[in-house]
């Protein structure tokens, strides 16, 4: 089956700046892809080109088997980063309008709008004007607008930007739901934690270039840090015997337990067994790789650490959400 999305050497320049530089990308049908990278990396430009809102200077792309998203707009759901509404319109009317613009019949659109609003706990807002909604509510309404046509491809540009944790969780569930329904999902974020939790596949962009394109599973394997996280069953358990265990290089005591660094040549499975035998664990696991670390490593190795690591980290943790 043809991929849901394919970009071949797509490049876009604004004046002197190369916003997107020979980007190749293939998103298979039914996948959940995360595009990550700091603010200004070129994520939005790439997405706008996928949506045929901008057009590449060179390169080719295909969306749902068409050479342009213009031919498939009714089958795409899109939540732009800069998402607005007609403030004077009523919620129900707005969603119905957006639905109809995407080829949904008037009746279906209003039925779906009501159902989705109810699902999001916004049933009572249907008759309200959009300007009377809180920001979190607005974001949910906008998400409903993006999925009202039951899209085959759902593109979300920074869907979690500026959301409170509760709304983030709600939105994450909805995205997962759409994914289960069969939609291919591509979302961008500069907050790595979101991508870590949600996507099956990660694409990292930095300064318009793709620096990583890997499934999460492979990433975890590839970047395993040989660290075991232990949370003892008894919080007051003595952790010192671990330091003398064969193969253990270092034990770092943290809040709920400790991080045990094992040396090269030691099998992590054996190490876990040995550790568990000494201290009864409430939880024991191999530390999962953090995308943030991967990214920082890639970027700083790649181009001679032009940017300070702390700045990158701050950006990726969402400390600078006002992008």
């Amino acid at each position: 089956m043809e991929p849901a999305l394919e970009l071949k050497a797509v490049t876009k320049t604004f004046g002197e700046m190369r916003a997107v530089d020979t980007l190749h990308l293939v998103v298979p049908r039914g996948a959940m892809y995360g595009v990550i990278g700091p603010s200004g990396a070129g994520k939005t430009t790439a997405i706008r080109m996928i949506m045929s809102i901008l057009f590449p200077d060179s390169g080719a792309l295909s969306v749902l088997g068409r050479s342009s998203a213009l031919d498939a707009k009714d089958r795409i759901g899109y939540l732009p980063e800069e998402r607005g509404v007609y403030r004077k319109m009523r919620v129900g009317a707005f969603l119905s309008y957006i639905g109809q613009l995407k080829g949904v019949s008037a009746e279906d659109a209003s039925v779906r709008a009501s159902r989705l609003l109810a699902r999001l706990g916004l049933a009572e807002t249907e008759r309200k004007k959009l300007e009377d909604l809180s920001k979190g509510m607005l974001q949910r309404v906008q998400f409903v607008g993006a999925i009202i046509n039951q899209p085959d491809l759902l593109i979300l540009d920074e869907p979690f930007g500026g959301l409170d944790p509760l709304s983030v969780r709600l939105l994450r569930d909805l995205i997962a739901e759409e994914h289960r329904r069969g939609a291919t999902i591509l979302f961008s974020t500069h907050i790595m934690a979101h991508a870590e939790e949600m996507c099956q596949h990660v694409v990292m962009i930095h300064k318009g270039r793709k620096v990583l394109d890997e499934p999460m599973v492979g990433l975890r394997r590839q970047y395993d840090t040989r660290t075991i996280r232990l949370e003892p069953l008894d919080p007051r358990a003595d952790l010192s015997p671990l330091r003398t265990l064969a193969g253990v290089e270092h034990v770092n005591v943290v809040d709920e337990g400790c991080e045990i660094r094992i040396g090269a040549g030691t099998d992590p499975a054996d190490a876990i067994r040995s550790v568990a035998a000494i201290v009864a664990p409430a939880r024991i696991e191999l530390a999962r790789v953090r995308l943030e670390d991967v990214f920082i490593r890639l970027v700083t190795e790649g181009d001679g650490a032009q940017e300070s690591e702390s700045v990158l980290r701050a950006n990726l943790q969402g400390l600078e959400q006002v992008s």
Binding site: R48, M51, S52, I53, L70, K73, D74, I76, Y78, P80, E82, R83, G84, V85, Y86, R87, I98, L101, K102, Q142, G145
Partner: peptide, 13 residues
């Protein structure tokens, strides 16, 4: 200015 235009452009040319 209200940025609704990008939502619209996702549906129409």
């Amino acid at each position: 200015s209200s940025r609704v235009v990008e939502v619209l452009l996702a549906a129409v040319s």
